[in-house]
Measured scan of single mutants.
Amino acid sequence: TEEYEYTDEQQAREAAREWREKGYTVTIEEHNGRWRVKTG
């Protein structure tokens, strides 16, 4: 599992979409105004 943090929701969603296209399972969670994208 890798985790990436973004301050911008749009960036987080874009990144998540790219990971999904590569076949990863992706979770996005908002935490204190930051967006965490977890792949695994």
Rank of each mutant, 00 (worst) to 15 (best):
T1M: 14
T1E: 13
T1P: 14
T1N: 13
T1Q: 14
T1V: 14
E2G: 14
E2R: 15
E2F: 15
E3S: 12
E3V: 15
E3K: 07
E3A: 10
E3M: 14
E3N: 09
E3D: 10
E3C: 08
E3P: 08
Y4N: 06
Y4Q: 07
Y4M: 09
Y4P: 04
E5N: 07
E5I: 13
E5K: 05
Y6M: 02
Y6R: 01
Y6E: 01
Y6C: 04
T7S: 14
T7F: 12
T7H: 10
T7M: 12
D8H: 06
D8N: 13
D8M: 05
E9P: 07
E9Q: 07
E9D: 03
E9I: 11
E9Y: 13
Q10K: 12
Q10A: 14
Q10R: 12
Q10G: 10
Q11I: 09
Q11A: 14
Q11K: 11
Q11N: 07
A12Q: 00
A12N: 00
A12I: 01
R13L: 14
R13T: 08
R13I: 14
R13S: 07
R13H: 10
R13P: 00
E14F: 03
E14T: 10
A15K: 11
A15L: 05
A15W: 03
A15S: 07
A16K: 02
A16D: 02
A16W: 04
R17S: 09
R17I: 09
E18C: 07
E18Q: 14
E18L: 12
W19I: 06
W19A: 08
W19M: 12
W19D: 02
R20V: 13
R20A: 14
E21A: 06
E21V: 04
E21L: 06
E21S: 07
K22E: 05
K22A: 08
K22W: 04
K22L: 11
G23L: 02
G23Q: 02
Y24I: 08
T25Y: 14
T25Q: 13
T25E: 13
T25R: 09
V26Q: 01
T27V: 13
T27L: 09
T27W: 08
T27P: 00
T27S: 10
T27Q: 09
I28N: 00
E29T: 12
E29G: 05
E29I: 11
E29R: 07
E30A: 09
E30S: 09
E30G: 06
E30I: 09
H31W: 10
H31G: 06
N32T: 03
N32G: 09
G33C: 04
G33Y: 02
G33N: 05
G33M: 03
R34K: 14
R34E: 04
R34G: 07
W35S: 01
W35Y: 06
W35P: 00
R36A: 06
R36K: 14
R36D: 02
R36G: 04
R36W: 12
V37P: 01
V37G: 00
V37F: 02
V37I: 10
V37L: 07
K38P: 01
K38F: 07
K38R: 13
K38H: 08
T39I: 15
T39P: 10
T39V: 15
T39K: 12
T39F: 15
G40S: 15
G40P: 05
G40E: 15
G40F: 14
G40W: 13
